[in-house]
């Protein structure tokens, strides 16, 4: 399963994420608080939530900017899987994910072992569907979050006319 297919990625290119920050409305603030509260979803059981959170933070860890968990990514992924893909595909994903968790005993592994397990999944990217979905949604969730989109990368709500600029004038890519 690929949540955004190649074509959607292509055509949503400028639309979904070239998006803007201006004074946030109350509505917007409420939505952010809600999405970061982490309590709303029942798609995953507690131990699977833990596994997902660990994996997303391995893919996008905290560095000099916050990482995936701080940006609310696990919650976003649950939301996408429960609402934004066909339920049958979501169930297939869940079965695969659960199998991986059980077989690897993921939550009980040491940090190093967890990192090694995710690295191994990433080396097989494209061949392990449940992981491809996690990676995709982790990146989408992170870079469309306020942290990913305006702290890690640069948000440019009202750029003014389009201009070419030397890359060195810009510290970080536009989100």
């Amino acid at each position: 399963m690929q949540v955004l297919n190649r074509r959607q990625l292509l055509i949503q290119g400028g639309l979904l994420l070239g998006v803007s920050l201006t004074p946030l409305s109350k509505l917007a603030l409420a939505a952010i608080e809600d999405s970061q509260s982490g309590s709303g979803h029942t798609f995953l059981s507690g131990s699977l939530k833990t596994t997902l959170a660990i994996i997303t933070d391995i893919i996008i860890p905290a560095t000099d900017t916050p990482g995936a968990v701080a940006a609310g990514v696990p919650d976003f992924i649950e939301q996408m899987l429960s609402r934004c893909v066909h339920s049958m595909e979501a169930q297939e994903w869940l079965a695969e994910f659960r199998k991986f968790q059980l077989e690897s005993g993921f939550n009980a592994l040491s940090k190093e072992q967890q990192l090694a397990a995710v690295k191994s999944l990433d080396e097989q990217l494209g061949q392990v569907p449940f992981y491809s979905t996690i990676k995709e949604l982790t990146l989408v969730g992170y870079y469309t979050s306020e942290i990913g989109g305006s702290v890690e990368l640069q948000h440019d709500p009202v750029p003014g006319p389009y201009n070419e600029i030397p890359l060195k004038n810009i510290a970080r890519a536009w989100s």
């Binding site: 201006t22 934004c84 989408v140 306020e146």
Partner: peptide
Amino acid sequence: EFLPPWSMEYRGRVPED
């Protein structure tokens, strides 16, 4: 018009159903 993606419940996606 002025909403960033993080202010949208599904970051711009529309729920499948």
